[in-house]
Design a protein around this nucleic acid. Sequence first.
DNA 1: ATGAAAGCGCTAACAG
DNA 2: CTGTTAGCGCTTTCAT
Lengths: 326, 326
Amino acid sequence: MPVTTRPVTIRDVARQAQVSVSTVSRALTAPELVRAETRVRVLEIADRLGYQPNPAARSLITGRTGNLGIVVPDLGNPFYPGVMRGAQASARDSGRSVFFCDSGGSARQEAALVRSLAPQVDGLVLCSPLTGGAELAELVALRTTVLLNRPLPGVSSVLMDSRSGAEAALARLALLGHQRCAYLGGPDESWTNGERLAGLRSASDEHGVGLRALGPFPPSFAGGELGADEALGAGVTALVAYNDLMALGALQRLRERGVAVPDRMAVIGFDDLLYSAVCHPSLTTVALPMEEGGRAAVRELLARLAGEPPSTRVLPTALRVRASTG
Amino acid sequence: MPVTTRPVTIRDVARQAQVSVSTVSRALTAPELVRAETRVRVLEIADRLGYQPNPAARSLITGRTGNLGIVVPDLGNPFYPGVMRGAQASARDSGRSVFFCDSGGSARQEAALVRSLAPQVDGLVLCSPLTGGAELAELVALRTTVLLNRPLPGVSSVLMDSRSGAEAALARLALLGHQRCAYLGGPDESWTNGERLAGLRSASDEHGVGLRALGPFPPSFAGGELGADEALGAGVTALVAYNDLMALGALQRLRERGVAVPDRMAVIGFDDLLYSAVCHPSLTTVALPMEEGGRAAVRELLARLAGEPPSTRVLPTALRVRASTG
DNA sequence: ATGAAAGCGCTAACAG
DNA sequence: CTGTTAGCGCTTTCAT
């Protein structure tokens, strides 16, 4: 049974080093203010004692925590781990820790999470927030915030250009001779969903392709299965899903139903998950820069924390043509 | 430009409510100690002012944060998001936030992460830690900790019984007539890896199947691609990968090389990711209870925080036979 | 270059 | 039931 020993405080170090607590504090946070000799002794003793500054105490006085927070709607969607990896890469370079949180795809939980997270971090990245309008404005006011895939006036954001991706996808379908296409919609609250639908709409007008907007469906594998059934009922020959997870679900359902892909139904997704290249048939998809999105968002957040004004950055997307469109 | 307003403190609330700060504090943290009338007034004013207790100040005095931390080695492996979802589900019920962190698959970073995270949470779950020996002992001493897939005397752990899973996998291969099998090993530091190898060894002895242990390989898709090449050189007819991600990578590489699965090479993984059922050919795998693992780990952590003694829990696994073994 | 002292915002005895 | 008081561990003026 390990005895619960009292943690080492700055005072313990000061006593051992025969200096005041202020000197210890300075040796740790502003070394240039301490005589080299003293500093070395203090640091050495701190190290020997295993001294770890109490972050709560430090944060109480400085108002900073050294942490960043990232909120994503769904850890189960590999898109977000991709973003998180990028984010972590940027953050690590700056010596900050990142706290990831999952809002579970609910706007209510998202808001609650942000409120509880905000005071524990210096800055936040909200990925594809479900919260909108006045409440979103309220949330971003809590802390320096960068939005991913959601624009908001006066707030930093990193956007992925899914609209042109959607246009490219539909153009591809038109080129292949498809006349009727369904869109398996994601969450109505999602900016991305609106962009994708808008891109499909404008391109379908341009190419004279009929577009049926279905949904909204849960943006998950299961949602794609559901959506495939509806698309089947809608008499279309092509289906564009809100994301790859849905597209994979749709592929699965179509296989179960004996519907040949791409012969009887072409399928396109968004994201370009690892699995989209591996599944069968491999998935044509609009590739989104996941890691770069995470990196850019944190980079922007660090810039904001360093005093830069808010900015918006749009990242390009690209259609990856694979087997599911023939 | 939003003006940076000074945050509302407990004093602001106290002044407005014409009570002392203690009464406000109590109204929020121990409502039964305050007269109903007073409490209502205080809470109402706190709400109107948008008062949010400063967590640093609170934590400084109570020594608690209300947060849990979970460290995983690789967000890119869908196994961990699965665990995280389970963990979050358990935590949410108890009203605690969970901070997820990614150690990036490096023991050094893992240790650093734990050290920085420990003082900011009440308890930790370390998933498949790469750190071992004395250093792991040191880490778990920092905070109440539950280990996932790593046993340690005197420390709570939740283990998944991959050893019997491995035995079942090899038995299956023996049944199908395979004589020579390769194991694509994961990280040497991983307890799970040892268990799987041990299970394969004992079953291969029992069934008279030759076993070649290859690796270690990175426990990733790319690692599986590498491993498949080595397995091909080893003249085996079956391959068991450390995890599904590797198995998927192996499938991909075998397809590129024109090696038919399962006819010329059978493939088995561990985890049962969503994609393992969807890929082609679908993957035979030892299913691990990801969400349940996360749930159980947090449940155990909460029990520890509530004063229960450490305990070890072993969760069962199950072989899912699919197309990759014929 | 260093020390003394004040106080960050909050909770927890201890009185009343 | 409520107010007063005393810090939690640390950083930061302000002196020296």
